[in-house]
Design a protein around this nucleic acid. Structure first.
Lengths: 217, 217
DNA sequence: ATAAAAATCAGGCTTCTCCTGGTTGTCTCC
DNA sequence: GGAGACAACCAGGAGAAGCCTGATTTTTAT
């Protein structure tokens, strides 16, 4: 039986390219594609893949949060992060979220293929550049508790923060996560209280620094 | 004879994916790949392709500058921009540099394939989202010159934008620059209209990119 | 089992936003 | 030197969004 894979990336042409590459390997099967984190989570529920290739930066729900949610419910699924950045924050948070591998988009396809085999054998695969970062941090004795959004804010709060930082209005957020406007308002207040921030502009900057959103509009 | 294509993108796996997709079409041939703008320019000299698929954001020499250089020497080459962003500045500058098409990475491969045929017939292809932007700017009468904050916005507007991006409320801004709240509101609307932006979060990101504010809170 | 934390929502008041409109001063261009 | 364009300023008013308080249910942790 072939290995079932879901591809999550916000760019369709990248997904198509990856799919074509993956399907050249006879034992790999791409069973679904997702363009954002939320979609990825629900597709995992539905399709039960063994592996998820996950872009780190996605709209709606980022790859880190999506990974966390997927692994809470399906601890057996192997998530391989595929990212443009070697930003230590992304790497750290992604691995904390339970990813089995972290590859840079600037890698050869052969590396991805190899990574899939490795994670299925319960090993961890890191791109060379990424491994370096982790080792550097380790030898430098950098305190491994980035006391950030990921420790202060709850899951839901991070979700709401991301959507806010993407420019969504309260009602749009309410619609996106299927709760009432009032709930979103409460979350926002809670976030602002916890962070001691009082404006959307500063929240946005915070979210950018924490990697919850990017500078792109 | 097949159509000779060069792929320029700084991520190897994206290049490989594109190549695989393109080579499924019997009349297309990828003769080279480049990981930055400088390499792309020299590869065009060497390989004489008909088409260059060009990522906009690349290290060393960005896609815009590379396009300009290629077309100065080889006006017949068709450059198709492939970008993650719908940022109007990129679109505008890329088209000014002489690109024959502008596609979003979030497009289907079929779109790229179609775009290649079109540009070879001396037509221009724009992704729907991109075309919208240009039309929006046009109907709004936005001055069609490199729309950076320093040419589009007035001095007062930049001032207000900066204060907004620093987290100030409308009334705080009014107080700071000694005008009425109503005036600040008008400025804000004017800014949003000019930039085609509809939320404080996105305004903040814009201001950061333009250097009007920093990421620090 | 029990307490704490997270997630959900509502009422009612305040504030902000959005749209349309207007005035004044300055500049350029012919 | 007058017309037109633009910048900077301001207002009214409807509707949307925000803020504060308080409350219930679900989940998690001990």
């Amino acid at each position: 039986m072939s290995i079932k894979i879901i591809i999550a990336d916000d760019h369709q042409i990248v997904r198509q390219g990856l799919r074509t590459l993956l399907e050249k390997e006879p034992d790999l099967e791409v069973v679904a594609e997702a363009e954002d984190g939320r979609k990825t989570v629900s597709l995992v529920e539905e399709m039960h893949p063994q592996v998820v290739i996950m872009d780190v930066n996605m709209p709606e729900l980022n790859g880190i949060e999506a990974t966390r949610q997927i692994l809470t419910r399906h601890p057996g699924v192997k998530v391989i992060a595929l990212s443009m950045h070697t930003d230590r924050r992304f790497v750290l948070n992604m691995m904390r979220a339970g990813a089995s591998g972290y590859l840079l988009k600037d890698c050869a396809f052969e590396e991805l293929s190899q990574a899939i085999r490795l994670v299925l054998a319960n090993k961890t695969y890191l791109s060379p550049g990424v491994a370096e970062i982790i080792i550097q941090d380790y030898v430098r004795g950098i305190p491994q508790q980035a006391s950030s959004a990921f420790s202060v804010l709850t899951r839901r709060e991070r979700e709401v923060l991301q959507l806010m930082a993407e420019g969504k209005s309260t009602s749009q957020i309410a619609e996106a996560i299927h709760v009432s406007v009032k709930t979103v308002e409460t979350h926002r207040q809670q976030i602002m209280n916890k962070l001691g921030i009082r404006s959307i502009a500063e929240l946005t900057k915070y979210a950018i620094r924490e990697g919850l959103t990017s500078l792109e509009i």
